[in-house]
Design a protein around this nucleic acid. Sequence first.
DNA 1: TGACGTGCATACCGGTCGGTATGTACACTC
DNA 2: GAGTGTACATACCGACCGGTATGCACGTCA
Lengths: 205, 205
Amino acid sequence: MIQFERTPDDTRQAILEAAFEEIYEHGFQAASLSRILERVDVTKGALYHHFKSKKELGYAVVDEVVGNWVTEKWQFDADSPDPISSIRRTIEGALERASERTCHCGCPLNNLAQEMSPIDEGFRERINSVFRLWRTKFEDAFRAGQAAGTVRPDVDVEKLAAFLVASFEGIVGLGKSEQSLEFVSSTLDVMLDYLETLRPQPAVV
Amino acid sequence: MIQFERTPDDTRQAILEAAFEEIYEHGFQAASLSRILERVDVTKGALYHHFKSKKELGYAVVDEVVGNWVTEKWQFDADSPDPISSIRRTIEGALERASERTCHCGCPLNNLAQEMSPIDEGFRERINSVFRLWRTKFEDAFRAGQAAGTVRPDVDVEKLAAFLVASFEGIVGLGKSEQSLEFVSSTLDVMLDYLETLRPQPAVV
DNA sequence: TGACGTGCATACCGGTCGGTATGTACACTC
DNA sequence: GAGTGTACATACCGACCGGTATGCACGTCA
């Protein structure tokens, strides 16, 4: 049960968080408003006072919860001279903090993307902007690496960023099916090994 | 409307295919039995004669439709001496045959995996066996390549196969969000470029 | 030819869904 | 202190859901 001060803003925020949890566990379409209301102990009147429909609630969850979730999780220093090492550290840190539930339920952003992108254009646009933001962070980091000489200058950073995000989501997604953190970890190793090949090669003697 | 001979086996098969379409477009939980019945023009009595519940129908769709779908799509010659080229050709062929809908709806197997793996163990097991079959095909192909000298012997084929399947699904999944076949194609290029680096290097003089 | 199992079709069920109409306690304004 | 808007709570709605009970045509076999 989510506890919160009974102020309007806190009520809205508490509903958002409860909705995020419910959607994370059941998907958006199977998410039940009444279960959300149980989680946060408010009534339907409160929910429909703050959100005009289930869909608008879903949109707000993407914009205000899932977006921040991703942004915070991937805030390696974009100006780092060595983005490849930064990314490695970020991923290793995420793996350490990963819970049973993370492995079980996967990435909330990707879950919503797979379920809702084909069905609803509003969801697709919102989800895609989060993906684009994420990719941009990678791009900036790699460009900084190229400037610092830790990443090969011939690397197409945009395509690489897209590939990295896709691979990461794919690995986490396959991990949901395998239900194994060790599987996720060792498959991510392949990705990180690939990243290492993007460093400038020492001159051949 | 699906047409079929009104024999018991054909009825069952027609229901399966209609269910596959419905699930592909809406997901399993949001798939509606009545819409499935409309697609195939049979009644609920017929459906519940052949399948004992919605869940059992879903299981059958995974086992008998989605499984074959993946198997047929990825049947590059496992004994080929050059699996990297085989995989490239398979992917390029798939891209040419890819429709608007494929880009829009993504991979039916991955869709089900992301939606149902965390929720239902029966789905997870069935989906995971299809993934494992797919990975095994990659593994066999790479081993054949190692034997033929077209793939570096130090490559861990199991981890590589897992990474490839994950990356492919991730790319297709991101493509759903971008709604762009060109995006899918160019991101797959990064993956294929990576594969090329797994060929034995010519000896350094 | 009658009994019986198969392969459906029809009609109906309780439950849950998202959504809404109405009421009300309270703060704030004039 | 009367009026008004905010922030909910309560009660209810029709639609649709998955599932079931019943009926019946038809082929098979005793």
